[in-house]
Write a protein that binds this DNA or RNA. Structure first.
Lengths: 137, 137
DNA sequence: CTGATACTTAAGTGAATGCTTAACTATCAG
DNA sequence: CTGATAGTTAAGCATTCACTTAAGTATCAG
């Protein structure tokens, strides 16, 4: 069970990072309505073509967008898979706390009927503090 | 219909930016299982408490996490709303291209029956190139 | 009061970002 | 061939980021 975390950029890092920029989200919004060329993506944006190309590079590196060049025109389109990965991460977290709320709800409903308190399922375990230092000796 | 885009950081910028960091995602994963103190969040992380507090500040600024201090312990918990906003943005984009695929599917099914070709609904409109320069004269 | 615990805050640093300008390389139209 | 179009690539630069160390400030236990 190796995780990235050290030195290698996890796919989700790149995806969320790419989506964090408003310019790039505008580009993704445009592409979600259908493929577009680079200059088409650039049209509504208040910056040089060069900057747009750099944003595109970020989107491609993240896997959210794919492109191919035909003649002198590069056509870009959305790559659904990476997109879905980001969506899934979010919904999994939500599932996690919603499960917890359900349990809490059940607990409250139970103690409402017969007042015999147990252990609060939403309370953190509160452990002693041990500090770490980074690898650097 | 004013949008952020200029000078002010849109809520989604902050949310996606916050989620782009693996350390912060670990923190969010922990919190999605229930509230936790700062040192509890720091325990599995290979960095100083100080750094964790700074990550927490980013998460709070993004609205993904909320915290309150009782005595000397700060308890952190997930704030579902902002989370949902990010999820919604993603699913709306997906809805957009899925609608397009449906139309394409319908179009193909139609031309399969009676071969009378029209205009490809997935093809970009290809307009002339006009370059902008940033505000700076 | 005294010492640990649980953060807080400030300053500094190297690397990553989001641009710009400038100079270039392929198409494609005539 | 010639000029416009579409994109590419390389510097350079101001900011922001993700840390670190260092020096606090409130609790709380004894």
């Amino acid at each position: 069970m190796l995780n990235y975390q050290v030195a290698a950029p996890a796919p989700l890092d790149l995806a969320f990072q790419a989506l964090a920029d408003p310019t790039r989200r505008v580009m993704v919004e445009r592409l979600s309505q259908g493929p577009a060329s680079v200059s088409e993506l650039a049209r509504p944006l208040d910056m040089t073509l060069s900057a747009v190309v750099q944003h595109l590079a970020v989107l491609e590196a993240s896997g959210l967008v794919r492109s191919q060049k035909i003649g002198r025109v590069r056509t870009c389109r959305i790559e659904p898979q990476t997109f879905t990965a980001a969506e899934r991460w979010l919904s999994e977290r939500r599932a996690s706390w919603e499960r917890r709320f359900d349990r809490l709800g059940a607990f409250l409903a139970e103690t409402e009927a017969e007042t015999g308190a147990d252990d609060d399922p939403a309370t953190p375990s509160a452990a002693p503090g041990v500090r770490r230092r980074r690898k650097k000796t």
